[in-house]
Design a protein around this nucleic acid. Structure first.
Lengths: 224, 224
DNA sequence: GATGTTTTTGTACGATCGTTCAATAAGCTT
DNA sequence: AAGCTTATTGAACGATCGTACAAAAACATC
């Protein structure tokens, strides 16, 4: 028997690292194949492991997907937060950096939309996914609110136009995220319709308009 | 042999009617079960027919889904268009009717979102679905543009603020649909975050702001 | 009532799904 | 080098998927 240097058939890896690799494979499959890529066999093939391994590191498919959801969101959020941190330390510059990061890769990508769509499609039928969706949404809203709050504080009440009501932070955040998400969604579905810079400009115009009779006056006007 | 009045085991129906029933069953299944409801067996059970019948009226599943997509979109569009037609014949009133119909049932419904999400999840992997998506999107954009155009014509150039640029119709339509879709999506995912009336008000404020340094000036400002 | 057309049924097929589990082997400890 | 732990494999299971197709039956026509 030759003592040839047999190369091992596979490499054992520490659980944390393997889990991370499986999560990455899950996201990659979602990007490429959408909902159809969300199968144990497709994912394990992408990760280069056998079908049985996934259930050794995750109790079931739902938990794997939920982990992928969390990781995917965390990475995107971290990306825009890094962009914000690099910006000049004025509320305006920070907001602009946030907007520009939102309308640039890796965020602005049809493949990213494909991933989100699959996650959205699951939230009503899996309590675990719904919880993750809620958590990530709150984190996102908090980020937007923080940027908006900075803008609101920095801007003093306008001396000119009489009693210009200060914009309502809650409604302003809702409107900005809506405009942001709507533009992002629209661009991913129909990339030719407008340029990312136009989306940023639309958002900034919307922010400017906050003080010209701010969104806060909505409430005071007496809604039903 | 008794000549008892045997009731027939099933009723034959004209193809057009049966097709319609199958489409309705498809949409109902999507509302209830999301992506998992999109199976031949689930749909045929919902419609009260056998599994084989679907392939007698539709060449394959994709065609059934595409037909359901078209029907679903046509019904929603028709709903808001009817609301617009009932409004007073001023651009402002028509736009308001459109917004209010957009933020009210049957449009504003988490089940409706569930249906859309499934359709969105398929557009990248089925050319047929992608075509339907593109068609329906164009129809929607045309509707929004028509309402916006009416608003733009009616409003003369503002005499006060110097050379107030007329808003750019293309960008305005993009922004309005984005704000609309974004708010709609946000409400469906988190119904407690704000009231439909607040969404309508946010859209109207956005429209007002068009003339206070309109979106058209974006281009003139020299974007990259 | 017999005949013909075509809607409808229900079984069958091959493929794929998520999960289980006994067997295997990699790599650290002794 | 032997032993131990456990990451990893891969076959197997039952369920469900979309589609095909021959048989059945409803209904119009003669």
């Amino acid at each position: 028997m030759l003592r040839a240097a047999r190369k091992p058939r596979y490499e054992r890896q520490p659980p944390a690292q393997r889990r991370q690799a499986l999560i990455a494979a899950t996201i990659e499959c979602l990007k490429r194949y959408g909902h159809e890529g969300l199968s144990i066999r497709t994912i394990s093939a992408q990760a280069g492991v056998s079908v049985g391994l996934i259930n050794h590191h995750f109790p079931n498919k739902d938990e794997l997907v939920a982990s992928a959801y969390r990781h995917f969101n965390a990475e995107l959020i971290a990306g825009v937060q890094a962009a914000v941190a690099c910006a000049a330390d004025t509320p305006r510059a920070r907001m602009r950096a946030f907007l520009e990061a939102s309308f640039a890769p890796p965020n602005l990508d049809a493949e990213v939309l494909a991933v989100w769509v699959v996650f959205w499609g699951m939230y009503r039928h899996s309590r675990l996914i719904e919880r993750v969706r809620h958590e990530t949404y709150q984190a996102y809203l908090k980020l937007v609110r923080g940027l908006l709050a900075g803008l609101l504080e920095g801007q003093p009440a306008r001396p000119r136009g009489g009693r210009a009501a200060a914009p309502d932070l809650r409604l302003a955040a809702i409107g900005l995220t809506a405009l942001l998400d709507g533009l992002w969604l629209q661009w991913c579905l129909e990339p030719g319709a407008f340029r990312p810079a136009e989306a940023v400009a639309l958002c900034e115009r919307w922010l400017d308009a906050l003080w010209v009779g701010g969104a806060g006056t909505l409430i005071a006007r007496g809604l039903p």
